[in-house]
């Protein structure tokens, strides 16, 4: 059959569901092992954060798409959580190998890290669904002019939902791509576009934490000699 945009989107969704079918909604035993190895066990905080962000996400999803779609928002969030735990485990395995250390207490107790990682997982889910359900005309005429409701739920929508600085989201993108080999070429391109948007625009907003870091860096002075301008 011809490879239409709708068919491509349906194939991506099918693949995503297949990939995450065997993944768990809860941290695996391996992940729990990493939590237990921490100086401060983050298990409880992680579970609480996932629960809170789930409520916020479902509420905002229903506001944007329609109150009848609360269940759909919960389904999307559930897929995002599966991906979040899976990528977290892969990242920690890779860090253990790189650093020869099993105690990631600082990282695993960072709220910015978890919120960014979950936001990135959800962005992958939401971007996969763009061009599917709501483009079939069920949700009004906008479906026919290319301005699907779901397009509005793509990046940077998730930053607003989680009140997450773009600068923090940026930090997880590269490690996320490295840790999740099943990402399609289109999805990697999408995440790259998110990176560019942050670099060129979102990270330079007045409330960005980047300015404070630049200030700190300026006060501490250069750590090493700057490279020549040509480089």
């Amino acid at each position: 059959p011809p490879h239409t945009p709708i068919r491509a989107a349906m194939n991506s969704i099918q693949q995503l569901r297949f990939d995450l079918n065997s993944a768990q909604d809860q941290p695996s035993d391996v992940l729990c092992g990493y939590f237990k190895n921490c100086t401060v066990d983050p298990s409880e905080e992680i579970a609480k954060r996932v629960d809170q962000l789930g409520q916020v996400f479902s509420c905002r999803f229903a506001q944007a798409v329609g109150q009848g779609c609360v269940g759909l928002g919960k389904q999307r969030f559930c897929l995002g959580v599966r991906l979040y735990y899976r990528v977290m485990e892969a990242m920690l395995k890779s860090e253990e190998k790189r650093l020869s250390d099993k105690n990631f207490s600082k990282l695993l107790n960072s709220s910015a890290f978890h919120t960014s990682l979950l936001a990135c997982a959800l962005e992958v889910i939401m971007a996969t669904y763009v061009g599917s359900t709501f483009k079939n005309g069920d949700f009004g005429s906008s479906a026919f002019d290319g301005t699907s409701v779901e397009t509005d739920l793509c990046f940077p929508w998730i930053l607003d939902v989680f009140q997450l600085p773009a600068f923090d989201f940026y930090k997880v993108i590269e490690s996320f791509i490295k840790a999740e080999p099943s990402l399609s070429r289109d999805m990697i391109k999408h995440l790259e576009r998110c990176e560019h948007l942050i670099m060129e625009h979102l990270a330079w907003r007045g409330d960005s934490p980047m300015f404070e870091l630049l200030q700190q860096s300026h006060e501490e002075g250069p750590v090493e000699q700057a490279e020549p301008p040509a480089t």
Binding site: K106, K171, E174, S175
Partner: peptide
């Protein structure tokens, strides 16, 4: 992931990026 331009050096990882929290 071949098309993606990886910028992190080998000695950098997610731990270092969230170290300033």
């Amino acid at each position: 992931n071949q098309d993606y331009h990886f910028g992190l050096e080998d000695h950098e990882g997610i731990s270092e990026l969230f170290d300033c929290d």
